[in-house]
Amino acid sequence: MSTTPILSARGLVKRYGRVTAMDDCDFDLHPGEIHAVIGDNGAGKSTMIKALSGAIRPDAGEIRLEGKPVSFASPIDARAMGIETVYQTLAMSPALSIADNMFMGREIRKQGVMGRWLRQLDKAEMRRFAREKLSELGLMTIQNIDQAVETLSGGQRQGVAVARAAAFGSRVIILDEPTAALGVKESRKVLDLIARVRDRGVPIILISHNMPHVFELADRIHVHRLGRRLCDLTPGEVSMQDAVALMTGAMTPDEMTSAA
């Protein structure tokens, strides 16, 4: 890996009282890759992801975006720098439409007097943009852009959330357990969707518990253990069993290299 990482972290520390959730943690995301993050429950993956997406501030350590040190006070900050996160809860307003949700917090106003003085939204433009983004990602099995999000299936909702992130995330997209709540068929569609987003050139951080999904999609895998990065793996070079063994501490990275 000679390229500069697009997003990297060095020596991140986060303590909650006497619990150290992140302990000298490193992280590297390279351009154009799907970088999976795996780790046992309580290993501190979500703490690391929250630090990268601006939801928490680390107590120590440094985050660099395209080589430049950055500091996020909130997810809005991270978003302004092109890092979009799809939360496990999806962060959508169920009663509002797909278009409303895609533009929540960054609405487009009309040009001219109606927009400037009466602050009228350009709904036609927002609908057009939303429809275009969904079409690009092959999500147009959705009936109507004005449909309330709560009328969509779980997979469709996930799709809209990913499309929102893909539409605005210019540098990094973070997906937190995108298939956790989905059935087999819907998971399939979402995995295809993630691959399509990657093919457009935006690197993706994928947090998942599902080993087959991780091994299918990821270009590299970050194994998180006891609050820090244990190692980075390449899916073709290790077996799923080994990855799980590393994650749970049944095996150390040294044992793996000697075995190989």
Binding site: I76, A91, S93, A95, L96, N101, M104, G105, R109, L121
Partner: peptide, 23 residues
């Protein structure tokens, strides 16, 4: 017709989701 109005609905619908979405 305004962003403020959409935010009022979003806050009432799911406050945490609205905050994460940037409201």
């Amino acid at each position: 017709q305004t962003a403020w109005g959409r935010h009022v609905y979003a806050v009432g619908d799911d406050k945490d989701a609205a905050a994460l979405a940037g409201v």
